[in-house]
Design a protein around this nucleic acid. Sequence first.
DNA 1: TAGGCCATCTGGTCCT
DNA 2: AGGACCAGATGGCCTA
Length: 163
Amino acid sequence: MSTGSAPSDPEDDEIFNRRTSTNVRKTTHLNSRRYLDKDLEDEGVDRRIQQERSKPPKAHQKDSRQSQRNAANARERARMRVLSKAFSRLKTSLPWVPADTKLSKLDTLRLASSYISHLRQILQEDRLENSFAHPVSLTWPFMSTARSEEDISSTVRLCGATA
DNA sequence: TAGGCCATCTGGTCCT
DNA sequence: AGGACCAGATGGCCTA
């Protein structure tokens, strides 16, 4: 899998990082500086360990739940970042869209959808001109095989026509 | 300044 | 049990 290793647009990264830093600031604000304070307390680690040991079981449970939540948040951030990168890559694969064009995720999906419809139309016109089957056809998940007419119609049925 | 877009957090649900 | 996925809520940034 190439997840996360795709070349990314430096400009997108810059925007993402800027947003990320502001949102982290927002988060620390929302959570009453919970995370920031934790980072600033490095020198008090020993004291904290002693306090942990003297905590009642309920407090341990609470801390455990919180650390699990933090881990889940981090995973969610990573997941959403992968999603955003995929949108960026999809955007760059769209023709007629200059690299510096601002496209929302919704716009990107709509344009990609109409581009696929356009390509499908070209493919069908080409098949009408040549009576033999097209040598290359794409099927989910991205296999390149020759196939019959009914296969294509089923794909069209699955994807639907978008305009 | 309102509205659109986005990243993040969070709790719920499903799956392994 | 833990991770992935999802949707709702929230607040910051940007633009018309």
